[in-house]
Computed example of a mutant assay.
Amino acid sequence: MTTTKNIAVLYGGTSAEREVSLNSGKAIANGLVQSGYHVELIDTKSVPLSVLADKNIDCVFIALHGRGGEDGCLQGALEYMGLNYTGSGVLGSALCMDKVRTKQVLLAQGLPTAPFKVIQQAQFDMADCEAVLAELGGVAMVKPAKEGSSIGMAKVTNAKALENALVEAFGFDDRVLVEAWIHGPEYTVSILGDTPLPAIHMETPREFYDYEAKYQSNSTLYHCPSGLPEQDEQALQILAKQAFDAVDAQGWGRVDVMRNEQGDWQVLEVNTVPGMTETSLVPKAAQAAGIGFSELVSRIAESAGLNK
């Protein structure tokens, strides 16, 4: 492929997911160079966004995970500057970064998601932990509302554990999602354009698919094909696309889903800028669909501007 397009890959940043973003940005840049693009890597931690105004940039490839890159702030700034960018727009990015808002939209659209409680730091009495846990079935997952990569998350099985997990989660966010524990396997479906890619089934010996299982462990298994019967695979892909559309996600992304003991799907969240190293989940799914890494990042880059 020969092209004269100039692409700025924004990566790094200052969020809790900085290290993951550094790896994603480098991999994306390498893939774009292999496809013939002119690429400039820009670490937004040390380089102000204003430098883009002085560059001949055709589009911006967003490889920033978490706050400041995935939450709509950057997308709004780029739109103000008149620059095309990859992925979801302002609304979809902001919604998906907020796990609470995402679940509220899913419920409003009639899509399946586990029962949950929203805990506000300033309003919550830790003496109520036992009642909250009982309401959610005795076992729950604690999640900061606006963090990714499982940062600040914990499984809890008693009131004291919930109290400790809330204290930890409040270090990342003053609003925390406490979600009923789902007993069952976890899957993810990547979306490229309007097309769901083959599902991936993740298995880990750890309590859940946490940061270590995602980025540090050698014991995590990824099954693609997922091992689901064809009818179930199709149903999962349809649900993932419905969830993706419900929160106004666009361009590309990933929808995380679990299956409970009754065999029902439960949508966890939608990721608008998921990890993008060559061994990340979206590239694994793309490979299963016959799409190599360079082609994948090229297709995402070519879709830039469709989010306006």
Rank of each mutant, 00 (worst) to 15 (best):
G148V: 06
V257E: 03
V142N: 05
M153Q: 14
V90D: 06
G89S: 09
L49P: 10
V105H: 03
Y85P: 02
V255S: 05
C73Y: 09
A304H: 11
S303V: 01
I28L: 10
V47A: 04
E147Q: 14
S226A: 14
L10P: 06
Q75T: 09
A29M: 08
V257C: 04
K117W: 04
E179V: 08
S298K: 10
C129P: 09
D98M: 04
Q250D: 14
R254I: 06
S46E: 15
K26Y: 00
G292V: 05
A286L: 03
R175N: 01
Q109Y: 11
N30Q: 15
E212R: 09
L221Q: 14
A134S: 13
T2Y: 04
K26S: 10
M97H: 03
R175W: 00
A235Y: 01
A134K: 12
L221K: 15
V105G: 01
T4V: 08
T4Y: 03
Q216K: 13
V142T: 09
V167Y: 05
I300L: 02
E212T: 12
Y37A: 12
L83Y: 10
P225I: 07
N56L: 14
Y85C: 06
G69D: 06
H223P: 02
A161P: 00
P48W: 11
F244L: 12
I291V: 12
P115Y: 07
L78G: 02
G305F: 13
A77L: 15
D194R: 10
I42L: 14
L95K: 00
K146E: 11
Q237V: 00
A134W: 00
N218E: 14
D194F: 00
N271E: 11
Y85T: 03
E19P: 01
Q109M: 07
E212S: 13
E207W: 01
K45H: 12
V60H: 02
Q34V: 08
F124D: 03
T220D: 11
A301E: 06
D256R: 02
Q123C: 09
K5A: 13
A16R: 05
P112F: 06
V270Q: 04
K5V: 00
E302L: 13
K117H: 14
G13T: 07
Y187N: 03
I300K: 01
E212W: 00
E130N: 08
T113A: 07
L296G: 02
T220Y: 09
G148T: 05
W265E: 04
N23I: 00
G87Q: 10
A213V: 10
G148E: 04
S150T: 14
L78S: 04
L296Y: 05
L52D: 06
A127F: 12
Q109G: 00
L239N: 11
I300N: 01
E17N: 10
G69Q: 06
P225D: 10
Q34D: 15
V297F: 11
Q75F: 09
F61G: 02
A140C: 09
R259Q: 15
L236G: 00
A114G: 03
G89H: 07
T113S: 13
M81A: 12
N307C: 13
L236V: 01
V255H: 03
L221Y: 00
A8Q: 02
Q262T: 12
A243S: 13
S219E: 15
S150M: 06
L239M: 12
A140S: 12
V60I: 14
V255R: 02
V189A: 10
K55W: 10
Q250V: 11
